[in-house]
Design a protein around this nucleic acid. Structure first.
Lengths: 193, 193
DNA sequence: ACCCGGATGACACTGTCTGTCATCACCATA
DNA sequence: TATGGTGATGACAGACAGTGTCATCCGGGT
């Protein structure tokens, strides 16, 4: 329920993304963003805890979404089967159809180390949610953490490829390709004898 | 070659870690640190690009170290065998014998989201170095990235356990345990049929 | 005795983020 | 229509992070 001009938050997000692409994240100040959005600096920090967060607001519910998907999956699936299914579900729900905007965003993030750090934190939060769900299904602690981290890594690698301008395959295909590579690489995983 | 009182950098690191443990990272200002070290604020930022970076300076050469270890390893090892060997080597060179200081540092980092972000960036840099070495050995792009990320994840999980006050096993044993869990979890990795 | 280079001090300045209070719009109710 | 409550916004002051710039100091070499 916004007052004055509606959609203050969305206006801030749009203005920020525009300015970041035009002149870079580091060269854009919060006053610049709020001026373009017709708001004040103080209001920006009421909507986003910091300047970086404006680029990640749209995926704030990712962990909850993943938790919901994993909870309603059949309990017979092994951890790796579960995450393979989950990755395809997430791809369909949140990536397919948004390649352009995601590529723009990805480009902005890749150009700033601070934004890369924040992105890693988001991935870590996602891994934590997956770990939690796996534990609730009875998976052991270490196995749950490993599986969750691997799931996030697979997603990250596949999405990065998917956003490459020279890449035309659908995200689903790239996820499968990455999962196959994972299987081949981990075949010889053994402690040092 | 330092002037005035020697070891300015080390004094700053010590003062920072002390203050962070006493009152937390967020409640400690850079002027506080430099006052305890007998230096000025400006000098702090000549030694560390960031307030956060003062906690990570001691491991700045980690990527180079890992690269050196991987380069001199026998070329016959598979990627996963290579990282298993590398993890044990790093454990012996940089972790064994420093559990107390590392636990203190770990505690400080775990209490601040900004420091956690920075730690993730350090892990990402390590993974990038490993990826690079693997590629140079002929490993495919995706396999190299996957293996590198998994190596870092295994290290992180094992170290976190190792720093638990109730844990008494050596890091080597915890690394092996994690690698065994990895083998069991990834046994069923397959794309969705 | 002189000079040179690197490290430090001093100072000003921009930008991020926070605390606080006043103000305004919308809504419910009388 | 009037009135009061609720929540978002504006306005302002301020702490702190981080940077640019110039002066100063130290040690070493000639």
């Amino acid at each position: 329920m916004s007052r004055w001009e509606p959609h203050a938050r969305e206006r801030l997000e749009q203005a920020a993304l525009q300015l970041f692409t035009e002149q870079g994240f580091g060269n854009t100040s919060v006053p610049q963003i709020t001026e373009r959005a017709g708001l004040t600096t103080r209001t920006f920090f009421r909507h986003f805890v910091d300047k970086r967060e404006v680029l990640f607001a749209h995926e704030a519910d990712f962990p909850e979404l993943v938790a919901a998907l994993m909870t309603q999956a059949p309990p017979s699936l092994s951890p790796m089967q579960l995450i393979a299914h989950g990755l395809h579900a997430v791809a369909a729900l949140r990536f397919d159809g948004h390649r352009d905007i995601l590529a723009t965003r990805h480009h902005v993030i890749a150009a700033d180390t601070g934004l890369l750090e924040r992105e890693m934190r988001k991935y870590a939060a996602l891994a934590a949610a997956i770990t939690d769900c796996l534990r609730r299904r009875g998976t052991g602690d270490i196995e749950a953490m490993l599986t969750a981290d691997i799931a996030v890594t697979v997603l990250r690698i596949a999405v990065t490829q998917w956003l490459d301008p020279t890449e035309n395959r659908p995200l689903t295909a790239l996820l499968d390709q990455t999962l196959i590579a994972l299987a081949s690489v981990t075949r010889a995983a053994r402690p040092v004898g």
